[in-house]
Amino acid sequence: MREPRAQAFARRGILLLVFAFLYVPVGVLVLLSFNRSGLPTAWGGFSLKWYGELAGNAEILSAAWNTLVVALSATAIATLLGTLLALGIERRARRSRGLEAMVFAPMIIPDIVLAVALLSFFSRLDVTTGLHTIVISHVVFDLAFVCAVVRARLKSFDFTMVEASRDLGASAVTTFRRVTLPLLLPSVVAGALLAFTLSVDEFIIAFFTAGAGRSSMTLPMQIYSMIRFGITPEINALATIVMAVSATALVISQRLNRGRLLGS
């Protein structure tokens, strides 16, 4: 059935408007980051000058390093725990409402509430705060997302493959290593990439659990204080890099996960 012309017109018009709304604001940022004049008002020609300034900014470099350390550590822990959690939950004979709520909660608790809860918790126990407390806190939501992605994959998991492997004489361990794990791996990596992006971008929980001092400042905290200070061309350049990293991680994650990430 051919789409009526009026409908096709309206459909394209709506899509154009919505995508313009979503992409023009960040697109302007990206464009301005390459503007030699540094002014939002006048185009002074293409330049990588602001990226150069970033590379010479010790504060930003140290914040970027901290972010990398936090995100990689949190992702490693969350991927292991989240994958095991998904396998454990899917293996249960009966669905437990409490368990479902528990693994769902980190995704919906307002981040400000989780942030103040963790701050209270760490200070009550006299835990010295720093990068390690940010890692601990990030694992909380990261593992929930890894778990959700891996569970979605387990749902359509072809268990006859496992059976076939066993029937053909492979041991349980060999089967897990050579059949189950390779089949699950794309979703595990997709979950890990998602966790990494979330951790790189997370601001409020890191802000509350980092403790005082510059030494455990992460990139979003750095960006926040820069934004409060005013609009500078360096922020545009930094924003462009951060968005490029997230977008790359997500595109890979999406490919590995064959669209399941988006719930489609």
Partner: peptide, 10 residues
Amino acid sequence: WSNYLIRTYA
């Protein structure tokens, strides 16, 4: 999925 701060700053 991209940085919330940056999207607000835009």
